[in-house]
């Protein structure tokens, strides 16, 4: 079953009597257990898509289902763990109180709620701040609480809108680890970002959105594989100096065999990749002239 199914989704805003097409005929499916990265420059329509999925705004045309339920139904949100972009939470509550509020909204039984609350607080390193009012929380702490409240009820689908923003390197590493753990547990994660390296590390598939249109969708593995232009082989020579040898894709096996025969010590073989960022930039670049010619 498709966890998320987006069908010809369009969204138009009216800004000062001008119609602005924020989302143009987007179709997309996400399978169970998939980590899907939604990549695109600012204002591409990533947040618009996510807001339609969580029923904050309504599509002009098209539809979206989550677990087969229309996304504008409250019932559809029962299995989503959602982290909004730059989240804000009732600041008169403490972290623990807010998590309790969240848990009850998802009908979590009282018995497991307290234990689960401590678990997520520990995961996000918020135990020390658990009983402090959210008023005093820093941006990074609020972001982490946002992840905590998304994880709390252990849903099958996670939708994260820019989960890394506002976080320090430690926080980013934390989020990457969380997403990997979710993958290992067979959860589905749909997240938006404009940072390609995040996608490269954690995603299975990536969709690139430019000016409201999905311009590319592919598995990360495939992108990375097609992008390899050659390899750099690092060897330690006779005088104990390291040397680097550039080889093309086709030469690789032959060169390695030769080196091994010569008893040369191979220290490292690195692919010279046309990385995701280049792919992303190329895709956008390719998109610009066609958009302008319209």
């Amino acid at each position: 079953m498709n966890i998320v199914e987006i069908n010809a989704l369009s969204k138009e805003y009216k800004v000062k009597k001008k119609r602005i097409r924020a989302l143009d005929n987007l179709s997309l499916t996400i399978q169970k257990g998939e980590i899907f990265g939604f990549l695109g420059p600012n204002g591409a329509g990533k947040s618009t898509t996510i807001k339609i999925l969580t029923d904050q705004i309504r599509a002009t045309s098209g539809s979206a289902t989550i677990f087969g339920i229309q996304s504008n139904k409250a019932e559809a949100r029962r299995q989503i763990g959602y982290l909004p972009e730059n989240p804000a939470f009732y600041d008169f509550m403490t972290a623990r109180e807010y998590l309790s509020f969240t848990g009850k909204c998802f009908n979590m039984p009282e018995s497991s709620l307290a234990e689960r609350t401590n678990q997520v607080l520990a995961t996000l390193d918020l135990l020390d701040a658990a009983n402090r009012p959210l008023k005093g929380f820093s941006k990074g702490m609020t972001q982490r609480l946002g992840l905590a409240q998304a994880l709390l009820h252990d849903p099958d689908l996670f939708i994260f809108d820019e989960p890394m923003s506002g976080l320090d390197p430690i926080g980013r590493a934390m989020v990457k680890k969380i997403i990997k753990d979710l993958k290992n547990k067979g959860k589905t994660v749909f997240f938006s970002t404009h940072i390609t390296s995040d996608v490269e590390v954690v995603c299975d598939r990536v969709g690139i959105l430019v000016k409201g249109r999905l311009v590319a969708i592919d598995s990360v593995e495939h992108i990375m594989a097609t992008g390899i232009e050659g390899y750099i082989i690092q060897i330690r020579g006779q005088d104990n100096k390291t040397e680097e040898i550039k080889v093309s894709n086709s030469e690789l096996n032959g060169v390695i065999a030769r080196l091994l025969a010569d008893n040369v010590k191979i220290e490292r073989v690195n692919p010279v990749a046309h990385n995701l960022e280049d792919f992303f930039l190329d895709t956008i670049q390719a998109q610009v002239p066609t958009n302008e010619s319209q």
Binding site: Q56, A74, I80, P87, F89, D91, C105
Partner: peptide, 14 residues
Amino acid sequence: EKRYIISVLSMPIK
């Protein structure tokens, strides 16, 4: 205004 509503209404609340 403070965007609390986004966090609240994205839960299964009518």
